[in-house]
Protein backbone atom coordinates (compact mmCIF):
# COMPACT_ATOMS: atom_id res chain seq x y z
CA UNK A 1 0.00 0.00 0.00
CA UNK A 2 2.53 2.56 1.17
CA UNK A 3 4.69 2.23 -1.91
CA UNK A 4 1.66 3.22 -3.95
CA UNK A 5 1.90 6.57 -2.14
CA UNK A 6 3.93 9.46 -3.42
CA UNK A 7 4.73 12.10 -0.80
CA UNK A 8 4.18 15.65 -1.97
CA UNK A 9 5.85 18.50 -0.12
CA UNK A 10 3.35 21.29 0.52
CA UNK A 11 5.54 23.73 2.41
CA UNK A 12 6.49 24.55 6.01
CA UNK A 13 4.24 23.81 9.01
CA UNK A 14 4.33 27.54 9.74
CA UNK A 15 2.03 28.05 6.72
CA UNK A 16 -0.80 26.42 8.63
CA UNK A 17 -2.36 28.37 11.50
CA UNK A 18 -2.42 26.67 14.91
CA UNK A 19 -5.91 25.23 15.56
CA UNK A 20 -6.55 25.90 11.91
CA UNK A 21 -6.37 24.54 8.42
CA UNK A 22 -5.35 25.37 4.87
CA UNK A 23 -6.91 24.08 1.71
CA UNK A 24 -4.84 22.31 -0.90
CA UNK A 25 -6.01 22.15 -4.49
CA UNK A 26 -4.94 20.29 -7.58
CA UNK A 27 -4.22 22.00 -10.86
CA UNK A 28 -5.78 19.16 -12.78
CA UNK A 29 -8.88 19.16 -10.61
CA UNK A 30 -9.70 16.55 -8.01
CA UNK A 31 -11.18 17.05 -4.61
CA UNK A 32 -9.40 19.71 -2.58
CA UNK A 33 -7.65 18.53 0.59
CA UNK A 34 -7.83 20.26 3.97
CA UNK A 35 -4.57 20.13 5.91
CA UNK A 36 -5.09 20.68 9.64
CA UNK A 37 -2.80 21.72 12.47
CA UNK A 38 -4.05 21.16 16.04
CA UNK A 39 -3.29 23.05 19.24
CA UNK A 40 -0.61 20.44 19.97
CA UNK A 41 0.91 20.86 16.50
CA UNK A 42 -0.35 17.50 15.30
CA UNK A 43 -1.12 17.53 11.58
CA UNK A 44 -3.91 15.73 9.75
CA UNK A 45 -5.38 15.85 6.29
CA UNK A 46 -8.89 15.12 5.05
CA UNK A 47 -10.63 15.46 1.74
CA UNK A 48 -12.11 18.95 2.20
CA UNK A 49 -15.72 17.80 2.10
CA UNK A 50 -18.08 17.29 5.00
CA UNK A 51 -19.89 13.95 4.76
CA UNK A 52 -23.13 15.83 5.41
CA UNK A 53 -23.41 18.28 2.52
CA UNK A 54 -19.84 18.73 1.31
CA UNK A 55 -19.22 21.70 3.58
CA UNK A 56 -15.59 22.93 3.46
CA UNK A 57 -14.06 21.44 6.61
CA UNK A 58 -10.98 23.63 6.16
CA UNK A 59 -13.18 26.54 7.30
CA UNK A 60 -14.31 24.88 10.54
CA UNK A 61 -13.35 25.47 14.16
CA UNK A 62 -10.61 23.03 15.24
CA UNK A 63 -10.73 21.82 18.87
CA UNK A 64 -8.61 18.97 20.14
CA UNK A 65 -8.54 16.37 17.40
CA UNK A 66 -11.75 17.34 15.69
CA UNK A 67 -13.11 20.00 13.41
CA UNK A 68 -16.64 21.43 13.34
CA UNK A 69 -18.08 21.90 9.88
CA UNK A 70 -18.92 25.56 9.19
CA UNK A 71 -22.22 24.81 7.49
CA UNK A 72 -24.26 22.81 9.98
CA UNK A 73 -21.88 22.01 12.84
CA UNK A 74 -21.20 18.35 12.28
CA UNK A 75 -18.13 17.39 14.28
CA UNK A 76 -15.58 15.38 12.29
CA UNK A 77 -12.65 13.45 13.82
CA UNK A 78 -9.41 14.54 12.20
CA UNK A 79 -7.72 11.19 12.78
CA UNK A 80 -10.59 8.97 11.59
CA UNK A 81 -12.59 11.25 9.31
CA UNK A 82 -15.67 9.96 11.13
CA UNK A 83 -18.62 12.18 12.05
CA UNK A 84 -19.27 12.24 15.80
CA UNK A 85 -22.53 10.69 17.07
CA UNK A 86 -25.39 11.07 16.48
CA UNK A 87 -24.39 12.05 12.94
CA UNK A 88 -23.13 9.32 10.67
CA UNK A 89 -20.69 9.53 7.80
CA UNK A 90 -17.02 9.55 6.98
CA UNK A 91 -14.63 11.80 5.14
CA UNK A 92 -11.63 10.30 3.37
CA UNK A 93 -8.43 10.74 5.39
CA UNK A 94 -5.18 11.56 3.61
CA UNK A 95 -1.77 10.45 4.91
CA UNK A 96 0.43 13.32 6.14
CA UNK A 97 3.91 13.53 7.62
CA UNK A 98 6.16 16.22 9.01
CA UNK A 99 9.82 16.03 7.99
CA UNK A 100 12.00 18.69 9.61
CA UNK A 101 9.37 21.39 9.55
CA UNK A 102 8.04 20.56 6.10
CA UNK A 103 4.58 19.08 5.61
CA UNK A 104 4.09 16.23 3.15
CA UNK A 105 0.80 14.69 1.99
CA UNK A 106 0.74 11.14 0.73
CA UNK A 107 -1.12 10.78 -2.55
CA UNK A 108 -1.94 7.51 -4.23
CA UNK A 109 -0.44 7.83 -7.68
CA UNK A 110 -3.50 6.30 -9.27
CA UNK A 111 -5.79 8.28 -6.97
CA UNK A 112 -8.71 8.42 -9.44
CA UNK A 113 -9.95 11.84 -8.29
CA UNK A 114 -6.68 13.34 -9.49
CA UNK A 115 -7.39 12.33 -13.04
CA UNK A 116 -10.88 13.71 -13.05
CA UNK A 117 -10.88 16.81 -15.29
CA UNK A 118 -13.68 18.66 -13.46
CA UNK A 119 -13.81 19.57 -9.74
CA UNK A 120 -16.58 19.47 -7.23
CA UNK A 121 -16.08 22.96 -5.90
CA UNK A 122 -14.51 25.99 -7.52
CA UNK A 123 -11.06 26.24 -6.18
CA UNK A 124 -9.01 28.87 -7.96
Amino acid sequence: MLEALTWKKIGPLANIPVRGSRRLCFGSGGKPIAVFRTGEDKIFALVDECPHKQGPLSEGIVSGNSVTCPLHNWVIGLDTGLAAEPDEGRTETIPVKLVNGEVYVGLLVERPVLERPTIERKCG
Binding site: N15, I16, P17, R22, R23, L24, C25, F26, S28, V35
Partner: peptide, 13 residues
Protein backbone atom coordinates in the same frame (compact mmCIF):
# COMPACT_ATOMS: atom_id res chain seq x y z
CA UNK B 1 -3.47 36.77 4.38
CA UNK B 2 -3.21 33.01 5.02
CA UNK B 3 -6.96 32.95 5.60
CA UNK B 4 -7.59 33.81 2.00
CA UNK B 5 -4.65 32.50 -0.03
CA UNK B 6 -4.71 28.80 -0.86
CA UNK B 7 -1.64 26.69 -0.29
CA UNK B 8 0.58 26.78 -3.37
CA UNK B 9 -1.31 24.69 -5.86
CA UNK B 10 0.01 21.21 -6.61
CA UNK B 11 0.58 20.25 -10.19
CA UNK B 12 -0.90 16.88 -11.09
CA UNK B 13 0.56 14.19 -8.93
Amino acid sequence: AHEFAKLPELADA
